[in-house]
Amino acid sequence: MSLTHYLVLAAILFTIGAVGVLVRRNAIVVFMCVELMLNAVNLTLVTFARSTGTIDGQIMALFVMVVAASEVVVGLAIIMSIYRTRRSASVDDASLLKY
């Protein structure tokens, strides 16, 4: 399998994630799409690390995982508390932060 296969897969995953963030209203799904985008990026990082024979990309991917893990904790907590107060997990309902 050549380098291109990995990169095309990563691009497809990233696009699915991005479209999901833009079109889905459920906060949980939006959240999962964000994770999908992060992991698509991880895949490119690891791919390039493998092809160049260095470990920089792998280290970077580990960092992204750590950040994603902490983000999941905080993000889920926020979604939980929004759901408790509004009885809804729709991102369009939480639209008070405006002019």
């Binding site: 963030v21 079109v23 939006v30 991102v91 369009d92 639209s95 008070l96 932060l97 405006k98 002019y99």
Partner: peptide, 8 residues
Amino acid sequence: RAQTGFVR
């Protein structure tokens, strides 16, 4: 007005 509040 551009700040609509819609996350998406």
